[in-house]
Design a protein around this nucleic acid. Structure first.
Lengths: 129, 129, 129, 129
DNA sequence: GTGGTCTAGACCACT
DNA sequence: GTGGTCTAGACCACG
């Protein structure tokens, strides 16, 4: 079976991203309990130490809080979460735009390529890429 | 002086990207000679072995050919090169769109965000992100 | 002591062959852990970097997988392994037959030469070659 | 266009082989004049120095003789040529048989595989390999 | 001069 | 402990 994880990014970071996405998308709401290290380790087939590392880093980023003896919880700070979303979106956007410009695509090209990708209509075909 | 190379990605990969960009942008045309390992090492202030590694990988990807004792050359296969551009663009695009969708943005949102980024007009400001 | 490695072929390729043979012959089964770079380096009296190179190439050929921090493993893809054997045999065969034909030997000649070599009987002696 | 030469064997050796094959197969007979370095260089699209090296080595092996100011000629020593043929055949044979044995094929297997390859009859199919 | 290989030794992040 | 990367310096065969 194909590995679910990418080889050139640390697994713990990929796990951080998984959890962040769950939070941003609302699957995990502020204040929700996060599955225990053991549960996540079993579910993802990953060494518990690696899960531990991921959660520690999320704590450092104040996205997750641990309550002694009660497990870890999504931060109640809503601003933190919307900030997270903006930050991620900003990263994605700038990486994309900069990359496309380096490939020689310019303003309008880029927009129309994206338009073609998100809502493929009769006027756009894949060749446009 | 600030290092010209990024810490998250191995230097040899960044060198690969440098050369790929030169090829895609037309600074290096099909059949052109690529500067020798030693020249690149001197120019980029990088150990020759690292340059060697980068060029070997490009050779594996059939973007570059080495002619014994005569140096390395950009592949003459034009299709390979245009393929390279499409591949890079496709990667960037799908990573971006998929990422944005995971963050909860949908079709039109994504397009307008990109539009705002590439051609900032009076109606869009960066804060809108 | 006579070097265990041949001069015409790079050491790292010879190490690749060693490991491939272990896999084909079943000494290393699919999913088995491969000795660490350092272990192999000590055992074969070869610089670790050279071992590393050999294993990296095997990874490129998808004969071996590395699991971060956990070592390298023989691919679990059984088809890959049987494919390996067929590929090697096919190479050997076509190189041999083509070579013999270029030397002016034809069908039956070639077969009987091989027969003489693998099971020398009273009717064939090596001088016959 | 695909290069006519293999990357992991020196070109001059490959040229030596070309000429040897011509001699063994009778395309070049004992005493025949060998094309000049310039001619071969033009024909094979190879640096004359490389051709020169190949011919020098053939002289060292006494397969070719140079007559001052008159060019190079295939040796008149017929024994040398038949010896050449035996040597080449022996190399091919032992490399093949040894290789197949390392892959786990044994006597009769090897013979029947060769038989299938040189005269494919209704009883043998490729799957047999 | 060119690429290719090898050694030695070091540092790092990941598990 | 594991692989991955990088540097430094050396040697070699090829063209």
């Amino acid at each position: 079976m194909a590995d679910q994880f990418d080889n050139h990014l640390p697994i713990y970071m990929q796990i951080m991203d998984l959890i962040k996405k769950d939070i941003i998308s609302g699957q995990l709401m502020p204040g929700d309990k996060i599955p225990s290290v053991r549960e996540l380790a079993a579910e993802l087939q990953i060494n518990p130490n690696t899960i531990q590392r991921a959660l520690q880093e999320l704590e450092r980023e104040e996205i997750v809080e641990s309550k002694r003896g009660m497990g870890r919880y999504v931060t109640g700070d809503q601003a933190k979460i919307t900030g997270l979303k903006k930050e991620k979106a900003g990263e994605l956007l700038s990486r994309f735009v900069q990359g496309m410009q380096e490939l020689g695509f310019h303003g309008a090209d880029i927009v129309s390529i994206v338009a073609g990708a998100v809502q493929p209509g009769p006027l756009n075909d894949k060749e446009g890429l």
